[in-house]
Design a protein around this nucleic acid. Structure first.
Lengths: 128, 128
DNA sequence: GTCATATGTAACCAATATAGTTACGTTTAA
DNA sequence: TTAAACGTAACTATATTGGTTACATATGAC
């Protein structure tokens, strides 16, 4: 949804209200505003309040990557995460898998993110 | 949990019951059996029923990658998925983002998976 | 200064997913 | 024949998500 919203903002190229954006996503304006809140806190958009308020991109579509959007809405959550069960002290596997696996998952996630970084909002918009 | 279980099987290098495996993960044997069911259907382990039954790896730890395990438990689910709202026919963005974005996400996921494919269960086990 | 319009956010609901648990049928070696 | 183990259904508790209503706050237009 965040990418859909950002693409709409790029496509419209003008100030848009959460109402208008909600219509393109086919959802509720509040849902859209929640996402816009994340995007705003991440500095990807500008939000103007009050009468004639609305949202605009903070940078050009060429300067915004899918990774920027991903980070804005995902914050520190990981693609695949470890189980949270307490470790069994008597079991060497239980004590060590977590750390080892975390390192490998972290590596994989970083190549995923590097891939997202290559795609700019302009690339998506261009396909519209 | 699936990786934890598989590592335990590799480490023990002998038939293990869901009870024993549950103890290293610190959870319930049924939870473990559910995951073992996925791993079994994917052909990564052998399951023996009846008295003195239990689970063993179907291949050596060198022949099992994190990707194999990932696929076994994740099936066709994707790391990041598209929103499911119906498209707004009047809006070109709504009609086209989905396909374009899907292609980019698919690419990113494939580099993620390629990374998982590089890591073998033997690599994880060795760190224990 | 008032008012219409928009954002920001809290509160609540419904739907879904996950882990844990109990229970029980089925299988199999001893 | 029986004890031990898998396979799976059913139920519960918890968390997450999206949608919805409601309302306080901000702001441009008149």
């Amino acid at each position: 949804m965040a990418v859909h919203i950002m693409t709409a903002l790029a496509y419209l190229a003008e100030k848009a209200s959460s109402e208008v954006l909600a219509r393109t996503v086919n959802t509720n304006a509040v849902v859209v505003r929640r996402i816009l809140g994340d995007l705003n806190r991440a500095g990807l958009i500008h939000a103007e309040r009050g009468n004639a308020g609305g949202f605009t991109l903070a940078r050009t579509p060429k300067q915004i990557s899918l990774l920027d959007i991903y980070r804005a809405v995902m914050e520190e959550r990981e693609l695949v995460s470890l189980h949270e069960n307490p470790e069994n002290r008597k079991c060497p596997v239980s004590c060590k898998v977590r750390g080892t696996l975390a390192a490998h998952l972290h590596k994989a996630q970083s190549v995923y993110e590097r891939e997202l970084q290559k795609v700019m909002l302009a690339d998506i918009e261009q396909a519209m």
